[in-house]
């Protein structure tokens, strides 16, 4: 599904990603953990195609295609979804209008018939119901005046509507109360399937109680220093990232010896 090879990326001339290697297969859920500023959001931004991130080396393959060659909208149409750490408020653009435009752009790209306004609205209502979310947001501008939690839930709602093949969630759990956290987790779990993959970026092991990952990776200073299963997340919570970093150094030293 996704293959990241020796990815180096810099922002404003400063190298942030320093050789990331990661392979995500269909049906898998991977979690990326790491301290502040380690490059998690940078990785997500590079995957989504945000301007200002310069890839200096490496490659990203998505379903065998060169992801980095594609425009952001093309990536979305091909099935990549990014739940942003900081969703943008867009005053004046109605949520329904926005999501209908997105849905139909993607459907068109896939050669499917576009939804009319009523079909789209019906789908939105259905998804909100499944997610136990209120349909208030449909009457508002995109994220405008939303609380932090509402914004994160809105990301999950959009994901549920757009049904991506690869979802990247950037700290969608941060700052959520336990109820909102469950909404997010349910949304993610509902989407899990043999043909889909997820990359869940988080600071806290808490989310992983609800979304049980197949793999946990530790990103420190632009590199994945450790990979393990869900137990690794527990260790990290207890011992901190320095531990993982040191272990990695020790492992590296050990393998050399």
């Amino acid at each position: 599904m996704l293959e990241i090879k020796n990815l180096h990326a810099s922002v404003e001339g400063k190298e942030i990603l320093k050789g990331v290697n990661l392979k995500v297969g269909a049906g898998e859920v991977h979690s990326i953990m790491g301290p502040n500023g380690s490059g998690k959001s940078t990785l997500a931004s590079v995957l989504a195609g945000r301007d200002g991130y310069e890839v200096t080396a490496g490659q990203v393959l998505y379903k065998g295609k060169d992801l980095l060659e594609m425009e952001p909208e093309e990536r979305a149409c091909e099935g990549v979804f990014m739940a942003f750490q900081y969703p943008v408020e867009i005053p004046g653009v109605g949520s329904v209008q926005f999501l209908t435009a997105a849905l139909n752009a993607i459907r068109k790209h896939r050669g499917k018939e576009e939804y009319d306004a009523l079909e789209a609205l019906t789908l939105f209502r259905e998804k909100l119901k499944i997610l136990h979310m209120s349909d208030d947001l449909l009457g508002r501008s995109v994220n405008e005046g939303f609380s932090g939690g509402e914004k994160k839930k809105n990301e999950i709602f959009q994901m549920a509507v757009l049904e991506p093949s690869l979802a990247v969630l950037d700290e969608t759990d941060s700052g959520l109360d336990i109820d909102a956290l469950k909404v997010v987790a349910d949304g993610v779990n509902a989407l899990r399937g043999p043909k889909r993959a997820m990359l869940v970026i988080t600071h806290y092991q808490r989310l992983l109680n609800y979304i049980v990952p197949d793999y946990v990776h530790v990103l420190v200073d632009g590199r994945i220093v450790k990979t393990g299963d869900k137990e690794l997340a527990l260790h990290l919570e207890e011992h901190g990232y320095t531990w993982a970093g040191e272990r990695a150094l020790a492992d590296a030293a050990g393998s050399k010896a």
Binding site: A76, V88, V93, A105, V142
Partner: peptide, 29 residues
Amino acid sequence: DEDAIFYLRARGIPREVATALLLYGFAAE
């Protein structure tokens, strides 16, 4: 707002449509 344009594009909406949506949103008020 370039961040807003990117947000829309990241949902599959082509740049021109994203621009039009934002402009219209600005006038809509």
